[in-house]
Design a protein around this nucleic acid. Structure first.
Length: 278
DNA sequence: AGCTCTTCCTGAAAGC
DNA sequence: TGCTTTCAGGAAGAGC
């Protein structure tokens, strides 16, 4: 399930291998994988890939032809991957797009997404601006402590807020659980009730976990692979995600719990008590 | 505004 | 064994 670290690793591999490449063709396995801009598909052949960036959990490819820039945005959703041919997948029928390049030395790029949560968008400059403005809040890696504190000044529950892409773009369920555990904060504490010490902890932990996860190549839970087929090994550093019933890694004596009512929150009832947060 | 619920979708795993 | 059901998950939209 690609979140910020996995999208970052994906974007950096594409950048390293594809910047400067000229697109020969974009072939779609199914039209409904394109959320927006399907009619502009024929513009892309002949364009040069100038840059690859991550925004939130998405990968944005900047393409240029003559003086015009257009953008291919790949939302990875839950199961979406961008892959070079060396990366083999178990269900090849779920390859929904293939981008080929004029230089035969450049490996074609596949967009593979079995569950199809996540789409491709083909956008022009203003379209990209609208897309980013509508969907993505601040970036967790660059947000300042002060900006984060402002964002938390509300009555919403902390974990859903951390995962709300229009507020902070890039954190999903796995990293939200890990961040809250290491910050010692209950998933359902009201964000506006955090002390300034708790906000500091949250800011530090959020950035250090995400950076460490990027260094590890992301978390390969189920079917995540980087474009070259390599697995991320941050999963080995997970402390609470999918560890319900195991003893708290802080050795506090409590057992990791899973909250039933919502999308699986894993937490230590002792180290992440609501009292500690406020 | 901010919840919850539903929809999308497929493979894995659990239940019978 | 073999079928059916449930679940997982991100995001968007409906409804309260």
């Amino acid at each position: 399930m690609p979140e910020l670290p996995e999208a970052e690793v994906t974007a950096s591999q594409l950048r390293a291998r594809l910047v400067g490449a000229v697109i020969a063709d974009i072939r779609l396995g199914r039209d409904d994988i394109v959320r927006e801009g399907l009619s502009s598909l024929r513009w892309f052949p002949g364009s040069v890939l100038r840059a690859v960036e991550r925004r939130g959990k998405s990968v944005v490819m900047d393409l240029q032809k003559d003086d015009e820039h257009r953008y291919l945005v790949a939302e990875l959703g839950m199961t979406g991957l961008l892959l070079f041919p060396a990366a083999r997948v178990r269900f090849p029928q779920h390859t929904h797009a293939v981008i080929t390049f004029q230089d035969p030395a450049r490996p074609p790029l596949r967009y593979w997404n079995p569950r199809r949560f996540g789409r491709l968008s083909l956008l022009d400059g203003p379209g990209l601006d609208r897309y980013l403005a509508r969907r993505f809040g601040c970036d967790p890696l660059t947000v300042t402590r002060q900006a984060l504190a402002r964002l938390l000044r509300c009555r919403r529950r902390l974990k859903p807020l951390l995962m709300h892409q229009q507020a902070i773009a890039g954190i999903g369920n796995i990293y939200a659980n890990e961040i809250l555990f290491r910050a010692g904060l209950h998933p359902n504490v009201i964000a506006g009730r955090l002390t300034s010490g708790a906000v500091d902890r949250l800011h530090d932990v959020m950035q250090s976990i995400l950076r460490e996860a990027i260094r590890c190549g992301g978390s390969s839970v189920k079917d995540y692979f980087a474009p070259d087929g390599s697995e991320g090994h941050y999963k080995e550093h997970h402390l609470v995600y999918a560890k319900a019933g195991l003893p708290c890694p802080n050795r506090c004596g409590a057992i990791i719990r899973r909250l039933q009512s919502e999308r699986s929150s894993f937490y230590c009832p002792r180290c992440q008590s609501r009292r500690r947060a406020s």
